[in-house]
Design a protein around this nucleic acid. Structure first.
Length: 213
DNA sequence: GGTCGGATCATCT
DNA sequence: GATGATCCGACCG
């Protein structure tokens, strides 16, 4: 029950933590609802010298990125495009701003709650018709429950309220888990950035059907 | 199957 | 005033 990853796990280079978080389990307990998923895709934002990071040296410490300067093992949650939330695990020692963006999960538990949250967050249902009748929202396919950083936050009920929260205590807990023997880790360029876009700092479980792309 | 524009707002120029 | 560590629906093929 107390099987969470310790702060020492996160107190290492972000690229290493990003690799080793693949296969780990995220458990959220929000509004009395438990959901869980297995991490299959991450991105490392390595420090002040990483020009793609929210805490790059040219930006410095601000209200938004403050959590990145905090101790290892806490959450950095920010709003993107004014619409979605994104979850990071803060890595490295205090005052060294670095983090790992969680980009996709394989849904494990609480799929009903995930579906409900994802559906509620979707303005309109899919193409007209749906199941039950006119205007009925279409059921979210399992594959789309937690595929992408914004979607996974919706599915787990993660918002800015969890910024700076420990990753070892309810409502948000990261449990140990590794890539399986058969699973290969693949490093690729990060998604959706313009600066330092070539660096292979995105890590995925190769071939997983739950990846964002 | 792929591509494109809108939503929406804190942060930074 | 422009820009995102994104997602969704509309449209084209």
């Amino acid at each position: 029950m107390d099987d969470v990853l310790p702060p020492s796990f996160y107190d290492r280079p972000a690229e290493l933590v990003a690799r080793e978080l693949l296969g780990a389990i995220i458990v959220s307990t929000v509004d009395g609802v438990g959901t869980a998923g297995r991490i299959v895709e991450t991105e490392a934002y390595t420090g002040p010298d990483d020009d793609a990071s929210h805490a790059a040296a040219r930006i410095g410490r601000t209200a938004r990125n403050d959590a990145m300067f905090g101790p290892p093992g806490i959450a950095y949650v920010y709003r993107i495009y004014g619409v979605h939330w994104c979850l990071n695990a803060v890595t490295g020692r205090e005052l060294h701003p670095a983090a790992v963006l969680i980009r996709a999960l394989e849904p494990l538990e609480g799929l009903e709650a995930m579906r409900a949250r994802r559906q509620a967050a979707t303005p309109r249902g899919g193409p007209r018709g749906g199941e039950g009748g006119a205007g009925a929202p279409r059921t979210v396919p399992d594959r789309d429950l937690a595929r992408g950083p914004g979607r996974l936050c919706q599915a787990l009920g993660i918002t800015g309220a969890l910024d700076r929260h420990s990753l070892g205590e309810t409502p948000l807990r990261f449990l140990p888990g590794r890539a399986g023997r058969e699973e290969e880790v693949l490093a690729t360029p990060r998604v959706g950035i313009t600066r330092a876009a070539e660096l292979p700092l995105r890590f995925v479980l190769r071939g997983s059907p739950w990846l964002s792309r």
